[in-house]
């Protein structure tokens, strides 16, 4: 069984007629890097919360490392395995001091003081915030706050981190910081699932899941998904700008600027000869 596996996963917010997530069956391998995209109200955030056990499904099942998220006794273990970084950095920092905030999760788990110290130092080093350990959290920039929030999750030693639009409230510099951190975490073998509106961020993942009206509309590598420009447009989603440019020029698809430059150069050379 894959690390996270969903079987006909359904979630219905109380009082809503239409479920936010409808019979979604997906699996996420250990160490994979997945982006979930979709327009507002497509159920992507709800799906993210189901994947790390914050919401318990109203129908179907989610298995996280083999544990059923509807099983109340397993909830604590699931939370330890699979952490979540939220959109607003201010609303997930519990303590005013950076290192104390990072220590919050291991303290709750009852880890030995010496081990907590080690985990906090490691987590802060992993996100490059060691020098801010004794700073007041509220004085940091958005990107830095979000990195502290990531460190706070890392200190639990999770296998998987779900980012719920973690870059939505950040400026471009902050977004780059967080994207770099996601890449770094994934290289360390942590399963990364990121819900995002930014197509360039999604292009960095190994796999993209497109959500529409609570269902999976597309699922594949960024190259496969972004090749279907017209379909994405009909779901009111964009593709990365370079991809869109080449598509409109009628050239083969590209995900990154350097790749696009090569294709355009070749095309120009061909035309000149």
């Amino acid at each position: 069984m894959a690390f996270i596996q969903t079987e006909k996963l359904t979630y219905n917010y109380e009082g809503n007629l239409v479920p936010a997530v409808k019979e979604v069956s997906l699996s996420f391998e250990k160490g994979s890097y997945t982006a979930i995209i979709g327009h507002n109200g497509s159920g992507k955030s709800t799906l993210a919360k189901l994947l790390c056990g914050i919401f318990t499904p109203t129908g179907g099942k989610v298995f996280i490392d083999g544990m059923d998220s509807s099983d109340e006794e397993k909830q604590e273990n699931i939370r330890e395995k699979c952490g979540m970084v939220f959109q607003n950095p201010d609303n997930q920092i519990v303590s005013s001091v950076v290192e104390e905030d990072v220590a919050f999760a291991p303290e709750n788990l009852g880890v030995e003081p010496k081990e907590i110290r080690k985990r906090v130092d490691d987590a802060l080093a992993a996100v490059g915030m060691t020098e801010y350990a004794h700073h007041s959290a509220y004085k940091l920039s958005g990107g830095q706050k979000q990195r502290v929030a990531i460190a706070g999750i890392l200190a639990m030693n999770p296998d998987c981190i779900v980012f719920d639009e973690a870059t939505a409230m950040l400026d471009p510099a902050g977004r780059r910081e967080i994207s770099a951190a996601m890449n770094e975490l994934n290289k360390r073998g942590i399963t990364v699932i990121t819900v995002t509106h930014h197509m360039n961020e999604a292009a960095m993942a190994d796999r993209i899941v497109v959500m529409n009206k609570g269902e999976v509309a597309m699922d594949g590598t960024p190259r496969e998904v972004f090749a279907r420009v017209d379909e994405l447009r009909s779901l009111s989603l964009a593709v990365p700008q370079v991809t869109e440019l080449l598509y409109d020029l009628g050239l083969p698809e590209a995900l990154h600027a350097s790749e696009a430059a090569d294709i355009i150069q070749k095309e120009i050379e061909k035309k000149c000869h």
Partner: peptide, 22 residues
């Protein structure tokens, strides 16, 4: 949101809690 984030970080109202700084 904070309550959700705290739950995510295994907050269980002080049961079996330890401290980094003794």
């Amino acid at each position: 949101e904070l309550a959700e984030a705290m739950e995510c970080r295994c907050y269980r109202s002080g049961v079996g809690k330890t401290r980094m700084k003794v």
